[in-house]
Write a protein that binds this DNA or RNA. Structure first.
Lengths: 257, 257
DNA sequence: ATCAGTTGTAGTCAATATGACTCTAACTGG
DNA sequence: CCAGTTAGAGTCATATTGACTACAACTGAT
């Protein structure tokens, strides 16, 4: 553990003169159909930097925290402002505050991660400065955003395995095969359809509808709906909840940037 | 989702004039022997506020982020400065940024949580302004610190169930019964000794030593050592690690303060 | 020397969860 | 009406877990 020199700690006036800048950024994931295979893949929208530092490189959407909004509101607003997307799931990821994240000023970024439904993602228009990229083999991004995306991806996979999160990547109604495709796309492994169905059935919150998906060359699969609290943006304190679901981050500390 | 009025968002100059203050605080847990029963209990040190707001109430130890230190370093240093404690485990908990956390200024707190070994906790001297409190039935604290402690407790219990974290509350060498006592104290339920031993044996990282704990009225239990990376303060990027241990936060979003 | 008390160690048993697999019903397009 | 494909239910062996029993080892006290 490094110790800060007493000289620096005592120099209060200098500290107050130039406090670290505070930014809010968000990693947003969406499922988009792959061009080659029919399987959907994980994508995320990035914004091209139009000024230094890292001018020309791609970066996570983000912006400042204004006085009148909470951190969550700021993340949602910046997301709306820069990409036009309204996420169906939004959660704080981590606060990154390493010393040299930006070459110019000291910046502390409170990063959120989000999921948008595929319908939303399709509507989102791409422009010169906003484009979708595959989440896996990502090019070099501005700042430490490669690390951040990596961590967000880890968190997404974690939540996907133990929490009811997949539905936020689909529309309101979906077939069980589509849910399975989400799992396969995110976790990057094949899942047995029969066993997957069995597990989903004993999971609370998934209700069958009376509708079936028409148009395929096969037997029309039933459409389901997710009845769990579909809006994680609500401002409630969920700490009181007993551990209904399998709970628990592992001994896996986040990065110390 | 609330929308920020355009007026406020447009008033850039005012924003820059008074940016939100940034504070680093830490929730530190330690195991201390209970006075009544012999069983150890969870305690945490708090600091009495000597100035407004909330003058006279107890609060989490914390302080500012200085220019020359990372967030983790700032947490460790503030902990040292206010309580004299050096944690054996230190991890970011959450960034709290609600609008009205402090009555005077807008404050964003990046909160860490920590574990200190029982030997450390015993050495720590109490003073007029720094005292230990039981983690459960806590009195009213300054700011939103009651909520924060509650969330930290939830996180601790989570990690305890799935990660090798208990050893950071003990000394270097310990008996299996002591580990079990940690689990019972934190999770607040009794654990079957035989099953607990069975699980620990098939857990990597716990090595038996040749020593035995003398002084009891019984057969001397063997002392064990935890060989896992005992220092979670190291600055490494652990994202590359495969999911060796059971991994995964649930669909349990943190509070949106 | 004996005994009470606790730990270390092994093992049983039922309930549950999981992965691999089979089988049939339902629906499509030709 | 048929071939092809998926939906959906069920089977079976295996691994994990919680509750529980049994016993040997060892200490300190009587």
């Amino acid at each position: 553990m490094e110790r800060v020199p007493l000289v620096a700690a005592a120099n209060v006036s200098e500290r107050l003169a130039q406090p670290p800048a505070l930014a809010i950024s968000t990693v947003i994931f969406a499922l988009r159909p792959s061009v080659s295979s029919g399987r959907p893949t994980l994508w995320l929208p990035l914004v091209k930097r139009i000024r230094e530092p890292f001018k020309g490189l791609w970066a996570l959407p983000g912006g400042p925290l204004t006085q009148a909004e909470s951190l969550l509101d700021a993340a949602a607003r910046n997301l709306q402002d820069t990409t036009g997307l309204a996420p169906s799931y939004l959660e704080q990821l981590y606060a990154f505050g390493g010393l040299h994240r930006s070459p110019s000023q000291r910046v502390v970024s409170i990063v959120y991660w989000a999921l948008v439904q595929s319908t939303e993602a399709e509507q989102a228009e791409e422009s010169e400065n906003v484009q979708w990229f595959r989440a896996d083999g990502l090019q070099e991004l501005a700042f430490d955003h490669n690390e951040i995306v990596k961590y967000a991806l880890w968190r997404l996979r974690n939540k996907m395995e133990y929490g009811p999160i997949a539905y936020h990547l689909l529309g309101e109604k979906f077939t069980l095969a589509q849910v399975r495709e989400v799992y396969e796309a995110v976790l990057n492994r094949s899942v047995d359809p029969a066993n997957f169905r069995r597990q989903l059935k004993q999971t609370a919150g998934i209700e069958p509808t009376d509708e079936f998906l028409q148009g395929g060359k096969h037997r029309p699969p039933r459409l389901y709906r997710y009845s769990g609290t579909n809006n994680h943006l609500v401002k409630t304190h969920l700490l009181e909840q007993p551990l209904l679901e399998r709970a628990g981050p592992p001994g896996h500390p986040p990065p110390t940037l």
